[in-house]
Structure formats: C-alpha cells, structure tokens
Nucleic acid binder design. Structure first.
Lengths: 329, 329
DNA sequence: CTGTTAGCGCATTCAA
DNA sequence: TTGAATGCGCTAACAG
C-alpha cells in the first residue's frame, strides 16, 4: 500500500495539533466549530480516516469479533455468521471468520490465532464437546457466546434452538395423525442438537407402548440418510429424520424402491433448509432460524461489551412446517 | 481482556532485551542458542505470543486479507471464501469477511472499512458492474483479485469459471441428442456469468435456423424459475436454465402441470449445487468449482504479495454432468 | 478549548 | 551477537 495519510498529515494541513484531529474524529471531546471545520476539510482533502489498527493498539479494543464455525459453506453456519455480522457491522464491528473445515483438532489453533488478532469477542459453534481453551479465553476476560449448544456446567453465554421442543411438537403431530410405527434416523450423536432431537423422539414415544420404534444414527448427510434407510429392517409408517439432508436421502431410497411418499410412508426432516420446499414431495420439517441465532448471539456479545451480564442461556423457538411428505394414517 | 503478556514481560523473565525476544520470534536474525533457549522458556512459561495487532502496525502489513461477497449464506460464495481462506490460513493469513447482503449500495462502504482495517489484500465478488472504488484501492497499491467476473479493460487479476464454454458444451450435448426447440431461463442479466451463459446459448443456436427459441430473464432463484416457466408461451423440448435453482423452479411448475421430465421436456441447470443430484429427477447441469476459484484467487493474491505479477486472468474449466433430467429426442 | 507528551506492543535501525 | 533507542498511528492523560 502507498503510505497511508496519517493523523500528522492532517494536523499539518489543518494547522492544528494531532490531538485536535483525534478529538474531531472521536466526537467525545469538545472542539471549536472553527477548528472542527478546518480539520474536517483537511481530512477530506487528504482522504483521511483513522487507522483501525493504530486505534486498536492504543485503545486495547479492536472493534473486531472472531467467529469459529465448523464449516462456513454450510448455510446453517453461514447464516449464523451473517445474522451476527449484520448486527455487529451496524455497531462498527468487523468480523474475522475462521472455519475449522469440520476438523475438530484445528479448533484450538484457530481460536489462538483469533485471540492473537486482538478480537474483542468471540462467537462460536463448536464441533463436538466443549473446548477447554474457551475457558482460558473467558478467564482472560474475553466475552464469548456459544451457539447451537447449551452448556450449563460453565458460566458461558449460549444460544440455541429449542431442538427438544421442536421435535416434541413434530412427534405430537405425527401421533395425532395416526402414526404408530416409527424409525428415527439421527445425525452425529456427539452433537448437542442431535442429542436433544433424539431425546425428544424417545420421550414422545415413552407412553406409546403399542408403537414400534427403530433408531439409527449416522451423519447429517444425504448419503447417510440413504444408507440408514436401506439398513432399516422394515419401513415404518413414519421416518423421522435428524435433519432435512437425511430426509432427502431417505426419500431418494424409498422412491427408488417404489414406495410412495406419503401414501406408504411419511418422512420428516429438521431445519427447513431452502430446498425442503422444492423436494418431491415438499418436506414436512421443523424450522429453526440460524440467522436469528446469529443476531441473538451478537446482542448477547454486545451486552457483554457494555459491561452487562446477559442471560446466560437463550432458547429460540422452532416452528412446525407441514408439507406434503406426511399424511394421516 | 486481562492485560496481555507483552514482549517486555518475556524480556524481563528471560533477562534479555526486548530486541532479543523479538529476534527469537522472527527467526531471521541470529541469536545464540543459549539466549534462544532462555527466551523460549520464558515465553512458554508466560504463555507469550506476539500480538498480531502490534506487529501489523509496526510492519505495515497485517497478514490479513479482506473478502467482500454479495451473500455469505449462498454456498457458491462461501465456497469461494473457504477455498481462499484455506490457502491463506496455511500461510498464516487471517480472513476478514464482509457480506453486502445482496445490497450493491453497501459495497463501497464495506470496502472502505476493509481498507481501514489494514488488509494486505482483497478478494471480492462484486454485485453488478465494476466498482470504481476498487480502482482507487489498487492505485494505493492494494493487491486485488476479482472473482467470478472477467474484466479486461483494467489491469486487475480475475478468476472465473468458463461459463461460456460450459454452456456451449451443454448446448452441443442437447443438440446432439436431438433437441430442436429451446427456452432459456436466465438469471440477472447484469451479472457477468449470466451474460456469458446467455451468449453461449445464443451462439450455439446461431446456425440452427430450424430451431425454435425463447429467452426469458429473471433472478437466480427457485421462485423466478417457477414464474418464468409459467410465462412460457409453450413448453419446448429443452428448457435451459441459468442456474440450478431456476431449474428446480421450472421442474416444480412442469410437474404440477403434469409434464413428465425428461419424457416430455428436458431441463438443465448450471452450477451443480449439492441438491442437484437429489432432485427428482436428478439434474443435468454444468459443474463449476467455486472452492477451486477461491484457491486460485488466493494463489494469485499470494503471488502479488511476493512482488510477482500473476497472470491477470484465469478461466477455470467446467464439467458437463449428465443426469436424468434430459434424454434423447 | 487546545497542545504536548507518553506509550499501546512490536520490529528495526544503530552502536557496541 | 546483543542492547538501547526510535517510531508505526493513534488516544488519553495532563497542562495551559
């Protein structure tokens, strides 16, 4: 880069001290109208804006927040980042984004890089269990918000969808519409969301002594959904999937085998990704709002910046979306 | 944040000057083995790592690259970011990501924020036409790479898929399999990629005087594809869509109207998004590789950092992916 | 209200 | 090889 124009250049141009220039740009101290105009004019002429780098070093705050997510390509995670960034950007914060590329072993390194970059706060979706390095960061005083997971054992801010409640509602709907035999095709059971959804599935059937139940777990992917369905000993009245991708895989297999959806078997998903309304048939699912999760996380962070102690846990509503992949029995 | 341990603390602990500590961490100057050990031990004990912020200010380089994309939630754009970030991270660069949320009027502001944050380079996918602020940044000496658009009029590095060649190949395939009546359902015609694809479509049919041709343009969305198909005066043998989303919309409408795909009408897309193999029927499309585009962009940037002048234009191969949404006539 | 000065944490002269 | 001193661009005392 060409040499930046610095505060000194502006001070010279305006014929004032650098402190005055600084004051004009910080707007918290009083400067006479005359000098303010001079400074503004000079700054404009030289196209000057304060360097965030120098401000950061001096202030000890960088107006920067770090993000660490498992996979930025996954719209679920990128929506979280987008939601949070929107809120943060409007407060003049900038986002440094790291993706671990679904490699949990890289998380600590990336977190360290983020810390060294001088972030003021951290928003993260962790891959598996709680990363103890987070504790260290918090001990050092870094504001943190964990997304898509609720951790009660430590005093850390968390925001997640009500996975349990959403799945409960879906199951109630299925039960009410006459389904009595079920299969659950879950995602990676080490994740918080998968655990909650599966637990809700189980709990919903606890009193249904007549119901037939099958539970498999795999990955949150199309392929995994396809395979798990193939591995099913028999096709039940309803296949409840851990997320939409699994449901797409299940529907694909079922259609190949000549089953008609929903006439022969109902299929449900979770998430309501953009393609769920485009699938054939459109998928009955539980909508969660990752964008809102991001916004909420940002607000929790902002409150910490302002010295407030936000509610440490926020559970976001989910919504049952009934489409044509399910029907009454 | 708790007070960071600084280079001074380490120097004291090790009983050396801060210059020596600095030298040990920079590995470019010679320090005796003894002092090196002392410093390393002290740094380890105090858990010291140099502050990137201070380094940036001092060096005038931040090891940070800025990204500006229209929509980070769109996997196409996030793949570009991911591909580039992977390459850059491995060279110890960190990514500052901005999304204009599909609002072209915000681009210049975000670019300015990025500049003030002290980025060493910029990778961007612009919304519409060339943003002249980019020129200013380049004039100031900032290395820039434009992605998904080829700009020949200015001396700027560009990387994009061979949209034209890909569409040509697809049309050749369609022509070879006996299709003679076509509709083209294009995306936003102000984007470079849309223009290239449409041009290739037109050029392919230039010598087919017998062919019947219809051209509509809209947005790169499911809804737009649905509507454009509805607006078609008659259903041709092949509906060539500007991207996969449009194709999904088209297929949805066609199926609702009782058309059988591909028996009654072939449908094609562009991009090969993850859902294209899951649709019913799976979509014939042209695959492009945004992740590779990102990687390539990063390499072009790195070469600029090293003072090299990279090829200013890189066109990436596309691949025809034949699936079951098309058949011979 | 304005200017002078110190120092954020570090890399890099210049001497020794 | 090592240390002392300087300054990157800026903010925040402290004086005036």
């Amino acid at each position: 880069m060409t040499k930046r124009t610095s505060i000194i250049d502006v001070a010279k141009e305006a014929g004032v001290s650098i402190a005055t220039v600084s004051r004009v740009f910080n707007e918290n101290s009083y400067v006479s109208g005359e000098l303010t105009q001079k400074v503004l004019r000079a700054a404009d002429k030289l196209n000057y804006k304060p360097s965030r780098l120098a401000q950061s070093l001096r202030r000890g705050r960088s107006k920067t927040v770090g993000f660490l997510v498992p996979d930025i390509v996954n719209p679920f995670f990128s929506s979280i980042v987008e939601g949070a960034s929107e809120v943060l950007n409007s407060k003049d914060y900038v986002s440094i984004v790291c993706s671990s590329s679904v490699d949990a072993s890289r998380e600590t390194d990336l977190l360290e890089t983020l810390r060294l970059s001088g972030i003021d706060g951290l928003v993260t979706v962790l891959m598996e269990k709680y990363n103890s390095y987070i504790d260290e960061l918090m001990t050092r005083g870094l504001p943190v918000v964990i997304v898509d997971e609720i951790i009660k054992t430590r005093n850390v801010c968390c925001v997640a969808s009500d996975n349990y409640g959403g799945m409960k509602r879906l199951m109630r709907f299925l039960l009410n519409t006459g389904h009595r035999s079920f299969a659950f095709l879950g995602g990676n059971p080490s994740t918080f969301s998968a655990q909650q959804r599966m637990k809700a599935f189980r709990d919903s059937l606890r009193n249904e002594t007549e119901a037939s139940v099958d539970i498999l777990t795999g990955e949150y992917t199309f392929e995994s959904g396809y395979k798990m369905t193939r591995d099913l000993e028999r096709v039940p009245q309803a296949i409840v999937c851990g997320n939409d991708l699994i449901a797409f895989g299940a529907m694909c297999f079922l259609k190949e085998r000549g089953f008609s959806i929903p006439a022969d078997v109902s299929v449900t998903g979770f998430d309501d990704v953009i393609f769920s309304k485009m699938s054939d048939p459109p998928l009955t699912t539980v909508r969660q709002d990752p964008y809102l999760m991001g916004q909420t996380a940002a607000e929790m962070l902002l409150r910490q910046f302002n010295g407030g102690i936000p509610d440490s846990i926020r559970l976001l509503e989910t919504e049952l979306v009934m489409r044509r992949s399910t029907c009454g029995r």
